[in-house]
Simulated scan of single mutants.
Amino acid sequence: MNAAPEVGLIERARALAPLIAGEADEIERTRRLTPAVVNALIENGLYRALLPQSLGGAEAPIETFMQMLEEIAKADASTAWCLGQCSVCAMIAATLDHDTAQEIFNTAPGILAWGAIAHEARSVDGGYRVTARWDFASGSRQASWLGAHVRIVGSDGVPRKNPDGSPEVRTILFPAASAVLHDVWEAIGLAGTGTDSYEVSDLFIPERFTAFRDVPSALREQSPLYRIGIGSTFSLGFAAVSLGVARATLDAAIALARAKHQSLAASAMRDNQSVQGLIGRTEGDWRAARAYLYATANAMWHDLCVTGEFSAAHRSAVRLAATWTIHQSAKVVDTAYHMAGATAVFRKHPFERRFRDMHAITQQIQARDTHYEDVGKGILAGG
């Protein structure tokens, strides 16, 4: 397996952008990342950005991971989304015993994907048995292993509980060949992610192929990276994807304004004061969103490296910044799309796909309006 050191991940992502952009039409048409793109991501070690160094991964700081995704998203949102999903899934390696993690992540292609939490696994001698179907498995078509987050029931059928009374949830991992994938991803945006469903029937999962997700005491690796947790890392990564999509869409609008002479207009778009003002304000909106997201991530990372703790305050700050950034990115994309006029509706121009991709991103869990309510509730409680 090829591995990229932390230094160079962003540069490698930027260097791959022309290839990915050139494959974007085929990715959209087939609803899958193309073999050329997947192979390039593997060969350049990008899937291993968050994999522990003890397994040959980059174990990159969070800002490096975010910038890597941002660069890929400028070329194609579906590629960035799959890369982000599978990269974060690889963080589960920090809770697995070394030999198990080696088997999963250092046997080519070494890619793990999973979908939304659902269903139960029954405890049996030596592990668990499960029959279930899960949805929203972005990156599953490239993966050699799949996972699922399931509630655990005992051999007597009684749901197991954590000490605080909440349901016991584990992440189970199994070879992709053990599952049946269902081609269901006919979506308005992020069409190339192949975010399909997958199903297993009476599958036995050995104990060593299970893990507790986002439980600090379960960590084998002690890097600050793994204390952030999978959920918050997803938020930061997908917010960075939204910034990349917004940057590319705004850049396309700027390029169009420099060259286009609108029908019936007395002057070129670039000389129109309304267009000039709109571009200036929208540029400011994008820069503000990016600055806020990265400032939040960097402040959290600094505190984490000093204290070793990812606090509830950090989690709330990350959630707020990521949600707001995605919504602001959507506003930037909407402005650029409308600025382009009739040009934006044609598939040969770089607007309509990014418009659809961005609005697919806003429908994901990381962009839910209820996150504002959760943060607001904490603020009003004095947190």
Rank of each mutant, 00 (worst) to 15 (best):
A4C: 14
E6D: 09
G8D: 02
A15R: 14
A15V: 06
L16I: 02
L16D: 12
A17M: 15
A17L: 07
P18G: 02
E23T: 01
A24T: 09
I27K: 07
E28L: 10
T30H: 08
T30L: 12
V38L: 11
A40Y: 05
I42K: 04
P52F: 00
E63R: 13
T64M: 04
E70P: 00
S78A: 11
C82K: 04
L83V: 03
G84V: 01
A90N: 02
L96W: 00
Q102N: 11
T107S: 14
A108N: 10
I111M: 01
G115L: 02
A121N: 10
S123A: 15
G127C: 10
T131D: 11
A132I: 11
W134Y: 09
A137D: 00
R141H: 10
Q142D: 11
S144W: 03
S144G: 15
I152C: 02
V153D: 00
V158D: 07
E168D: 15
F174G: 07
F174A: 04
A177C: 07
A177E: 15
D183T: 09
V184G: 07
W185H: 13
E186H: 06
G189P: 13
T193R: 09
G194W: 09
G194N: 15
E199M: 10
E207W: 12
E207N: 09
F209V: 03
V215K: 15
S217E: 15
A218M: 06
A218R: 08
Q222D: 15
S223Q: 01
P224W: 04
P224H: 13
L225T: 14
I228Q: 11
I228E: 03
L236D: 09
G237A: 09
G237C: 14
A239Y: 03
V241S: 05
L243T: 08
G244I: 04
V245S: 01
I254M: 05
L256Y: 04
R258K: 15
A259F: 05
H261R: 12
Q262G: 11
Q262T: 10
Q262F: 09
L264W: 13
Q273C: 01
V275N: 06
G277P: 05
I279L: 15
I279A: 08
R281W: 08
E283Y: 09
W286R: 14
A295T: 07
T296S: 08
M300A: 12
H302D: 15
D303Q: 14
D303V: 06
L304N: 13
T307A: 10
E309M: 10
F310N: 02
S311H: 08
S311M: 03
A313N: 04
R315L: 09
R315T: 07
V318Y: 00
R319H: 02
A321Q: 02
A321V: 02
T323D: 01
W324Y: 04
W324L: 02
S329N: 05
V332N: 05
D334K: 10
T335Y: 04
Y337V: 01
M339C: 10
A340P: 00
G341W: 08
T343P: 07
H349S: 08
F351H: 09
F355H: 14
F355N: 09
F355S: 00
D357K: 12
I361A: 06
Q366C: 05
A367V: 08
R368I: 03
H371T: 10
D374H: 13
G376V: 03
G382A: 07
